[in-house]
Design a protein around this nucleic acid. Structure first.
Length: 763
DNA sequence: GAGCACTGC
């Protein structure tokens, strides 16, 4: 084989930024023996060469001898289905810029393909990286750990990962990086060509997270600009054709498909004869039927939410106890374990407990029942599941652009989702899946795929990201699935009112900084303007608190105590200030877990808020957003409320009558203050953080504001000449008239104006 | 007088 020196990094020069790559020089005469990658031409590597290099005693990436563990792991890797297709893979990788790959569960694609790519791409010789994205943090971390072991390197050196709050990579050394899809998107905002990467692998593309979808659009465009960039899209079978068409470089030619079989066991699927009127009741009945009549093996039941799951667990337990009492010899013991994301990690771990042992030796064996949300469909795998009970529902996010509200609805799942659920029964041995709907309904009623997130979300954040990425025409951007134009218009409108985009839709300097914060635009806006109100220290805290899950605990049997504890920490001016107070008290009490416990606060959520706050603080420093505060608390609180208005002026409600009804401004939705609201009065004007649709429409996390602030700080939005008629408009008009009569000479900063108003109110 | 599908930056 003839080797052109200019193509072979191991014969020619070393990249100056690269330490440890290439031959050590002294042994160049013996290159063929000592250098495991001798003769490797970047992107023209074959399977035979790689297998040989893998068997070499020297690690080609560290130049250290391979450990005994390496050889052992290598033997198990060779048994993975994807390993048998190495030659085909390299041929396709050499010949194509973009590949679509489908690999079933157990194929080994997530761990092996990025390594295969590294052997061909040789990113370390060019100062480049191979990236592999994951939708979830834990996946990025644990796969990186596994691959570092497989490659016999230390995690964080040649192989690393990058997730929010944690960068486990070493610049100049890391050449294989697992990362969350959101993290890659964030990098793209400051490096739109993603120059650092020679190959980008999008894993789990079929999950269609918002970030993956945007990345696919971005990469498709990038492929035309950067001929040197290779792209691999990895997905489940059902979506492959769609991705192949989307990524066709020439309009007639689909991207090539690389297919890897999985390694799972068959799952027998059963349907009900008739539709079930009550799926929870039917699910419980089915679980007990399995317990009585089926062979040993654990059961996974999918339900939609916490309450439903806890309720079902209680009922299953009761009925199972009944069965045992009736005939102790007929059925074994049963444990029922709930699983949902808001459960503390320690309790989530219980799903890995073994099933209970038989009560007597030779007696009927015990069984473990896991009752779970969708978390067990993708995020968590439980080994030993043999039976899956699938009622066919899950809670799904839906977005209504007309009233700008995201809500959760219990909806039928898709065929793809049903298939994924069934697959959970076949991970360790052949299993059974009981679908609590008819086969006809499965065939005719279920959608093929769950709608991608981009079609079900408020896109204000995404649109800001896209504009920051340099996408000029959002409507004509090449989406895999284009969102509704109205959703895009709503997002553009919001960003324009927030002054992140000008009237032509161009990014303003303010918008550019807003995009740098990992926050919703409203939060980013109020944080950036808060120094003007001398309260950025407080707004920073509130922003962090609004970015983490609810900090208030309310155990079922201690509701009164929890409510009393909350009342102690509440600030009457509004829930945002209560959040500020809670965080400050948490810090005053030295982050003490005992203190959080006695005040019915979630230590986990508060620690998260602390973490987020630190990250936001760093970003503020980078963009010179000053952190300032005021010593006068009354003035400080008033200023905080004004800064809140600067971000949330589109989420204002006005009280109507004395029955506790509020009308949201402009949208005219009738809403009520959420019962968790801590204010002791019902002020005339409030801003709210969230609109939630449960037993009725509520606004949650609410703070009192003054209508003058709306006119002062959101002049465009509150331009009354274009305002819909109604009581809100009349109330605002009264405010305008009063102002015009009295305050037309008032000038100065916002807090000066506020001080004057306070004085006036007192007199 | 109520709830929190799941992720991610």
């Amino acid at each position: 084989m003839s080797v052109a020196p200019k193509d072979n990094p191991y014969l020619a020069h070393r990249h100056p930024t690269q330490r440890g790559a290439g031959p050590s020089g002294s042994n160049s005469s013996a290159l063929g023996v000592k250098e495991p990658l001798y003769g490797f031409l970047p992107r023209k590597v074959g399977g035979e060469q790689v297998r040989k290099a893998m068997e070499n005693d020297t690690n080609p990436f560290t130049k250290q001898p391979h450990s005994a563990q390496y050889k052992k792991i290598l033997e198990s890797r060779k048994k993975l289905p994807v390993f048998a297709q190495m030659d085909d893979f390299y041929k396709m990788f050499t010949d194509n810029q973009i590949i679509v790959m489908v690999g079933e569960t157990g194929s080994g694609k997530t761990t092996q393909i990025p390594q295969f790519v590294a052997y061909s791409d040789l990113p370390h010789t060019k100062g480049k990286l191979v990236a592999c994205t994951q939708p979830r943090r834990v996946a990025a971390m644990s796969v990186a750990k596994r691959v570092a072991d497989e490659m016999d390197v230390q995690l964080g050196r040649q192989v690393g990962y990058s997730i929010r709050f944690e960068d486990m990579t070493e610049p100049g050394t890391t050449f294989l990086k697992y990362m969350t899809d959101g993290m890659l998107l964030r990098e793209a905002m400051n490096d739109p060509n993603l120059e650092r990467y020679s190959t980008i692998i999008l894993d789990e593309a079929h999950e269609r997270t918002l970030s993956t979808d945007i990345l696919m659009g971005l990469l498709k465009g990038l492929a035309k600009k950067r001929a040197d960039l290779k792209i691999i899209i990895m997905s489940a079978t059902l979506d492959a054709v769609k991705f192949q068409k989307y990524f066709s470089i020439k309009s007639t030619e689909a991207a090539p498909l690389f297919k890897v079989p999985g390694r799972t066991f068959p799952v027998e699927v059963f349907y009900t004869q008739e539709p079930e009127p009550d799926y929870v009741e039917a699910a419980i009945r089915t679980v007990l039927m399995i317990h009585r009549a089926e062979d040993p093996g654990d059961v996974l039941l999918f339900l939609t939410g916490e309450e439903e799951i806890e309720d079902a667990c209680r009922k299953i337990k009761l009925e199972a106890d009944d069965l045992v009492n009736q005939d102790p010899d007929a059925v074994g013991p049963l444990i029922c374990i709930p699983l949902y994301s808001s459960l503390p990690p320690q309790q989530q771990q219980r799903i890995f407990d073994a099933a209970p042992a038989a009560r007597t030796s030779g007696g009927p064996p015990g069984r473990k029942i896991v009752v779970s949300t969708n978390i067990a469909e993708t995020s968590l795998t439980i080994d030993g599941i043999v039976y899956v009970v699938d009622p066919g529902f899950s809670k799904q996010k839906v977005y209504n652009p007309r009233i700008r509200v995201e809500s959760l609805l219990v909806s039928p799942i898709s065929k793809a989702s049903a298939q994924q659920r069934a697959g959970r029964a076949g991970r360790t041995r052949p299993g059974k899946c009981f679908r609590l709907y008819t086969e006809k309904d499965f065939m005719n009623e279920l959608e093929e795929q769950t709608h991608p997130e981009i079609l079900r979300s408020n896109l204000s954040n995404t649109v800001l990201e896209l504009v920051k990425l340099g996408i000029k025409d959002l409507v004509r951007f090449d989406y895999v699935d284009a969102p509704a134009p109205e959703t895009l218009m709503r997002a553009l409108e919001l960003l324009n009112y927030l002054a992140a985009l000008d009237d032509e839709g161009n990014l303003t300097p303010l918008g550019g900084i807003m995009a740098e914060f990992p926050l919703d635009p409203q939060l980013a806006k109020m944080l950036i303007v808060s120094p003007e109100f001398k309260c950025s220290n407080e707004i920073l805290t509130i922003t962090a608190m609004l970015s983490v899950p609810n900090v208030w605990l309310r155990p079922n049997n201690q509701r009164r105590e929890a409510d009393a504890a909350k009342a102690m920490l509440s600030v009457p001016d509004g829930d945002h200030l209560t959040m500020l107070n809670v965080y400050n008290e948490y810090v005053n009490n030295a982050h003490d877990k005992n203190w959080t416990w006695t005040h019915y606060l979630s230590a986990r959520a508060l620690a998260q808020a602390d973490n987020v706050r630190k990250q936001l603080e760093r970003t503020m420093e980078r963009y010179e957003v000053e952190i300032v505060t005021l010593s006068d608390q009354n003035k400080l609180y008033a200023n905080v409320r004004q800064a809140l208005v600067c971000g949330f002026f589109m989420q204002v409600a006005h009280k109507e009558g004395e029955k506790g009804n509020y009308l949201t401004v402009k949208d005219n939705q009738v809403v009520a203050l959420h019962p968790s609201c801590g204010m002791d009065t019902q002020p005339e004007w409030v801003i709210f953080n969230e609109f939630v649709l449960t037993t009725r429409p509520y606004i949650r996390t609410v703070t009192e504001i003054r209508p003058e602030w709306l006119l002062d700080f959101a002049t465009n939005y509150f331009d009354l000449s274009s305002f819909p008629d109604g009581e809100t408009k009349r109330a605002l008009t009264r405010v305008v008239n009063k102002k015009a009569g009295k305050a037309n000479r008032v000038e100065g900063t916002a807090d000066m104006r506020e001080a004057k108003k306070r004085k006036k109110n007192k007199s």
